[in-house]
Every structure is written in structure tokens, then in C-alpha cells.
């Protein structure tokens, strides 16, 4: 189980937290002005990258505070954790830990990587 460093409580097991999906997706200020398609984009569409992902977490079984994180979804490594009112860190701050564009080695099965 991965550990998450809650900015308010410190490192805790992931099961204490709930994930809130992609971060920095602001609710439209004037929903009525949007087309069905654009509104649908806001309600149902979230990016799903393999690699660097800006996401939200809430410390459900702790302080109940929401916060943001940058995580590499190909390794589940947290690259940065920051409070909601902190600025969105620039992507250039992070180096993805991906080994290849998709992460899997060209031989082997995916879970077990062999170094050539």
C-alpha cells in the first residue's frame, strides 16, 4: 500500500485517503452558457495520463482536508504534494520515472523488467 504525505498530518497509508480525480479542473463559472458537449466535457471527461498526473486527494479518515498531488501513474511515485491554494507546479519540475514511452520493457511480461 502506498504512503501519502498529507500536508496537514504527515505520512499515512493510502487507505486513509480518497482520490478526487484530476486536479485543476475548475467548475465552469456560468454553466448555462456552455453547450451540451462542453458541459459533458466538464462532468465526465478527465485526463488519464500514464505518467505525470495532477490529482486531488482528501484525507477522509484523518483531517478531511483536500489537497493536490503530482504522481507518476506508471510507478505510483508521488512527485509533489501541495495545498489547494498553492500554485500548480510546472510540469518541467518533474522527470517522469517512465522507462519507455509506455513503461513496459520490450521483453518480459510487464511486471518484471529485465535490464538489457
Amino acid at each position: 500500500m502506498i504512503l501519502i504525505n498529507c500536508p496537514y498530518c504527515g505520512e499515512r497509508e493510502q487507505s486513509e485517503f480518497s482520490n478526487g480525480g484530476e486536479a485543476h479542473v475548475a467548475r465552469p463559472k456560468n454553466p448555462e452558457a456552455l453547450s451540451d458537449k462542453d458541459w459533458g466535457q466538464y462532468v465526465f471527461y478527465r485526463s488519464n495520463p500514464k505518467g505525470i498526473f495532477y490529482e486531488r486527494w482528501v484525507h477522509t479518515h484523518g483531517c478531511r482536508k483536500w489537497f493536490n498531488a503530482v504522481r507518476d501513474t506508471s510507478t505510483d511515485t508521488f512527485l509533489k504534494i501541495y495545498k489547494l491554494d498553492d500554485n500548480r507546479p510546472d510540469i518541467s519540475e518533474f522527470k517522469s520515472t517512465l522507462k519507455s514511452p509506455s513503461g513496459e520493457p520490450s521483453v518480459g511480461s510487464g511486471n518484471f523488467a529485465v535490464k538489457k
Partner: peptide, 10 residues
């Protein structure tokens, strides 16, 4: 409950 491509869950 979170996105991951690691093929490894909690």
C-alpha cells in the same frame, strides 16, 4: 480508487 498503470493495486 485512484488511477494507476502499475498493474499493482493496494
Amino acid at each position: 480508487g485512484y488511477n494507476s498503470f502499475t498493474q499493482r493495486g493496494g
